[in-house]
Amino acid sequence: MQPERTESPNVSRRWRTALSGLGPILGLIALCIAGTLLNPDFATVDNLMNVLTRTAFIGIIAVGMTFVIMSGGIDLSVGSMAALIAGSMILFMNSLGAGGHPATLVVALGMGLSLVLGAAFGCAHGLLITKGRVEPFIVTLGTLGIFRAFLTWFADGGALTLDGELSDRYSPVYYASLLGVPIPVWIFAAVAVAGGVLLNRTAFGRHVQAIGSNEQVARYAAIRVDLVKVLTYMLLGLCVGIATLLYVPRLGSASPTTGLLWELEAIAAVVVGGTALKGGEGRLVGTVVGAILLSVISNILNLTSIISVYLNAAVQGGVIIVVAFLQRGRR
């Protein structure tokens, strides 16, 4: 009994939908203009690479998070998971290195461990949520504490540091560049593209979207809802693993502050990018833009001193709300 509106689609709404998709990009462009005006150094290639490189961790995790949130889930544990994976990698590599294995092999094995652990943690989340029928918020809130506590325990509250030679062998993974672009940026780009293809051009991506839009309908439409959900959490875990294997060579250490609040940044990037927290709707490009936007804000704040440092968080909060406002949907 809906009024017939199908004959000529609502033009103004079309426009608004198109505009709302551009919200984060418009926000990013505005920020970049503002940044350049405030400090010409902002618009240098070096600074651009700095920003993109440091976005890589959150950005890669946010790509995985997009899938989880799209399917109607949430993962609060990613920061702690990254910390625990980083710590485990370092302990593992140090003990292998002490055993006299060649450094390159040890580093490769360490990176492998990071991916395996990420996928395993994600799988555990997925099973607890689907088979155990515990709310994702609760499951991952629990592991948020568990993961970080284990790292703190491993590190005795201090820092775990990668041994000298291993650290030297590993550091190019973060610090080296290919064609003038740092490795983490390449990997971030690769993950984003792969995520985009997976979300928009595969049956899995469509199923994720269908489950988030209406889980019940998806179940009736012969989608293996539980399997798809477990896979989204595993995918996110894998992304955390990738982010961590890029993170470890940066400082060569893991401490209880590693990955602190990454979960909030990743979720913020996803939501600022236009993915609905309740699931069903979202864009991967938006997530990437959202992640870059968040690091650009703090970059600009660091490059200027017009605002009291006490107000930094307020500026970040304000920009996030403005961008969300620009891309708000209907109602």
Binding site: T152, A155, D156, G157, G158, A159, S255, P256, T257
Partner: peptide
């Protein structure tokens, strides 16, 4: 609680 190096100490 131990959340960074110093409190760990």
């Amino acid at each position: 609680t131990a959340t960074h190096g110093f409190t760990g100490g």
